[in-house]
Design a protein around this nucleic acid. Structure first.
Lengths: 316, 316
DNA sequence: TAAAAATACTCCATAGGTATTTTAT
DNA sequence: ATAAAATACCTATGGAGTATTTTTA
């Protein structure tokens, strides 16, 4: 049984004439006759009564043709579904970002993307890098925004921007009058940092360790650090004078920052920085959707960041 | 798009693996890969994300495959419908009989046919020969039982039995003591006959006319006849002494006949007779159903009739 | 390196065509 | 005689095969 055969019997039932039905199907009369005979043989039942004057549909034929029409309708629905899904910028995109990026980027990203791809709503999740990576590979999510390093087989990444770190301290802090902070000086401070598992915490600690090594103090251990549950919590703690911290520039300089109670300082060169990157499965078929998100990200007004519009996709 | 392709994508969606899906479909992996690629090209949308480790279904793919399953289900319903309609003795048969046959045959026919073809209910209609013929050609009815002559192009007939005529009169009638009646004698009687349009009326009049001609009275006109609306009405009228009539033997001798008030007489040779015949469209595909009805008719206990079990179908 | 899908190619079944015959009116 | 469907026969598309390559984890 083929869809073509079904189209033929429906046409004959409509036209009650093999020749006219063949015309409607854009085939010759013998082609249609043979095809219908084949179907009747396969089903083991005559569908039509052929008389010289008129073609009549048998009782079984009536039911078979009714069902055939249903099949053809359902089949044409497939084409409609496919047509609707043709535009990569239509349909939701499951998007994830790490905790230290999402809150500062998505508020700007969403309206920008809405302009570029109004029919592509973002389904947004925030999570740790590790969890986002799992979900990405697992197919639970389509695109993630996180901090390098990141890369696994089957995953493509493309850098979006570099984001410098900022030292944030109470205005009462001694460093509040400095114009810039040296990274190595952080080692002598108690830093409020995110709990373990947040990549930003590790990046800050690594920046400190790196600065120490660069200054020759190879074995010096880092100061113990207090822990906060989110960058916003930490900033509240800093504002209340508990201590100082290091934040990514987008977090340090976003409009919710309380500029009265805290001072925000850049680091002196070499400025510690993290690279923020998009990642998706190599096999993910909506490349244009990914690029639309990337372009929207590049259009975001993110304080302090260096956009990387030329960055090439990297295949790991 | 073909049903085969739909089966392939459903299999891949189930197995999440082209090779295994191919096995389930009893085809080689390249065959399946090529077919799916063809469908994806036709739809213009990728249905699967192929990664070395795993095959994932795309968002559109999910919807397409869901719909494909629906199509396949509906298609398999066609096979079921056909299988159910395979037995010619299953499903109603639209049966018609002329007014002067139906009431005397169908009461016996129905239980006999019920034994032979329990799943083939008869949808019975009674009407005039002309109307039954129209309906038969028109496809509104499948099989009719009527009196010869009958035959049109595209119609097959097969005689079932010969039915002799009987003279029926009030017991008070002078002929009530005769053992047999001569057909020619009817000409001098006022006969109660059916209204015009009933073939039996014409057959009786023709029998009379024929007998007259045979006796040399070529130009003698028939006596005027009174008209009744049905054979049963006429019999009531005879019983009440209005006059006499001629009935087919099945009507004259059926168990509802009032034997007290009427006398029923056979005709002397040559006995006037009508031939009762089945007729159906040559193209009607349920030959076995027709034969089942014919066999049931031949098994009926019909008084006076001569069965014609050997009669061959006649193609007009 | 191993596993999986894609590609290359070959072959044959069959869908479709034209010409003709059969059938029925 | 005419109209319609069936049949015969031919062609070519494409579905399915095997062998091989490419890809990627």
């Amino acid at each position: 049984m083929t869809l073509t055969e079904l189209r033929y019997i429906v046409a004959v039932a409509r036209e009650k004439h093999f020749g006219r039905a063949a015309e409607k199907c854009f085939v010759s009369q013998p082609t249609l006759s043979v095809a219908i005979k084949k179907l009747e043989d396969e089903l083991g039942v005559p569908l039509f009564e052929r008389a010289a004057s008129e073609v009549r549909v048998t009782a079984v034929g009536t039911r078979v043709i009714e069902q055939a029409q249903r099949v053809l309708e359902e089949a044409s629905a497939i084409k409609q579904i496919a047509a609707a899904g043709k535009d990569e910028l239509v349909g939701p995109l499951r998007f994830g970002a790490i905790y230290t990026v999402g809150p500062y980027v998505t508020p700007q990203l969403i309206p920008l993307l809405r302009k570029r791809a109004p029919k592509m709503p973002l389904l947004i999740q925030e999570n740790y890098t590790a969890r986002l990576g799992e979900m990405l590979k697992n197919g639970d999510i389509d695109l993630i925004l996180l901090s390098e390093p990141f890369g696994e087989p089957g995953i493509v990444t493309q850098a979006v921007y570099d984001e410098p770190f900022r030292a944030v301290m109470p205005v009462s802090h001694g460093w509040a009058k400095k114009s810039r902070i040296a990274t190595v000086d952080l080692c002598s401070e108690n830093l409020l940092l995110l709990s373990s598992g947040n990549c930003f915490r590790d990046q800050v600690l690594q920046a400190c360790a790196g600065a120490q090594r660069a200054n020759g103090a190879v074995n010096a251990s880092l100061q113990q650090s207090l822990e906060g549950s989110s960058l916003e919590t930490i900033r509240q703690m800093v504002a209340s004078g508990v201590g100082m911290t290091v934040l990514p520039s987008t977090a340090a300089e976003c409009r919710t920052a309380d500029t009265k109670l805290t001072a925000t300082k850049s680091f002196s060169s070499p400025e510690p920085v993290r690279r923020i990157t998009l990642a998706w499965r190599k096999s993910f078929p909506r490349a244009r959707a990914v690029q639309a998100v990337r372009e929207a990200l590049l259009a975001c007004k993110l304080p302090g960041v260096t956009l990387l519009p030329q960055a090439a996709p990297v295949d790991h």
